[in-house]
Design a protein around this nucleic acid. Structure first.
Lengths: 218, 218
DNA sequence: TATAGCAAGTAGCAAATTAATACTAACTTA
DNA sequence: TAAGTTAGTATTAATTTGCTACTTGCTATA
């Protein structure tokens, strides 16, 4: 029997195992910037430092369920877009013990944000140049931003960052922020024309021409 | 309580933990098809069934290292393209116990394939309609193929499936198989022109015009 | 030693998409 | 009523992609 075969048949309880956690990168767009929810750590290690919200995975819940739980516990939110990001397995991620962290990211429109003293949004741009973020969470956030940047162009994830009813200038702004570049108005509209439908309503109270309100198809 | 005191009192073993494994999806292109390496399971569960090669993650190795180890143990290969795919955390993936599997995929040119009786390549197309694949490995393979299909168009992963020296018809065929569609010769060449450089060599022994041999830039 | 067969490789145009600019429309405020 | 401001549309240029037809260099065979 090879070593590998031996390992596969062992009684799992006799061996040391890593802990498995889920960390959540909750993105929103606010003040023309991509932002992420960070909590203040209340325990060692990294006490007092900003960190991603996370939970340990329980034996009776799937990873997706753990991610949902983290989302709900920390934000009260439900039914928003989320997806697995990457699994981080470095040896010294946590000084207490070996922890493998399965990261998820979620996208939420600005309006739904329930901030508290312990849980605040910070611009990604700012986070990435700070030195005080707990664990490897800065790296996770950077990776998440990259994933979003890629997916924006070939999926509809941008719609998850906008309310059900939105204007095209609003939606375009989201695309621009995620992609990190200006887009041409006319071209942008041609491209998403088949993914949306117009309502009979318009914005009001603006100093200029009102813009039509749209909804996503399906 | 100081940080030091806290670390001393923290006993990570009081909680039950899932086991963590790494499963490897080794892709190659052979006989004009995308194929995957499967091993025959020699133990319960799913004894005798085809499964992805995998190992349990050791406490002293990272996930990437475990994936490398699986790759090397099962194939003797080293230094080939590999990347984390997805982490599978369903409750009943394995009847023995809760196992969380971090899947990786790797790409290898056909020439380097070391097959044995226990380790053979199978066409993905065929695998996906079989019912006897162990665990949730069929799903993992399908997911891997999807990932590749996406990444082909915006990265250079296709080059990992071809030897260092290759012809353009050869490379084009790889793209076509990964994308699942025919490409136009002239356009294909324009598109990858800046990623390759020509050598002074040509194929020989063909019944027709020889094709020039190229290499990837960088 | 032609010439037919065959895949490699190139030229070039049509169609569609993307880049870019300029315009018109609808509102508020002075 | 005019100026300011952003929404929305029209239009053209540039680039990319879709597609067809051609030329090239080899082998096999007549």
């Amino acid at each position: 029997m090879t070593e590998e075969e031996y390992l596969k048949t062992y009684d799992s309880s006799e061996f040391q195992k890593p802990s498995v956690a889920v960390d959540l990168v909750l993105f929103t767009v606010r003040k023309e910037e991509l932002q992420v929810l960070l909590t203040e750590r209340e325990q060692y290690p990294y006490i007092g430092r900003p960190a991603l919200p996370g939970v340990f995975v329980r034996m009776e819940e799937t990873l997706d369920e753990a991610a949902q739980r983290a989302l709900y516990q920390k934000t009260g939110l439900h039914d928003i877009y989320f997806e697995q990001l990457y699994t981080w397995g470095g040896l010294d991620r946590d000084p207490r013990m070996r922890i493998i962290s399965v990261s998820y990211y979620a996208l939420v429109p600005e309006s739904q944000i329930p901030e508290t003293e312990q849980k605040k949004f910070f611009p990604v741009r700012e986070i990435l140049q700070r030195e005080d973020i707990a664990f490897d969470h800065r790296e996770i956030i950077a990776y998440g931003r990259e994933r979003i940047r890629n997916k924006v162009s070939y999926t509809d994830i941008a719609f998850s960052l906008v309310p059900e009813e939105f204007t095209l200038p609003q939606l375009q702004k989201i695309y621009e922020i995620l992609l990190g570049q200006k887009l041409y108005k006319a071209n942008f509209r041609k491209k998403i024309a088949d993914k949306i439908y117009q309502t009979e309503h318009f914005t009001s109270g603006t100093k200029h021409r009102p813009s039509r309100i749209y909804r996503k198809k399906d």
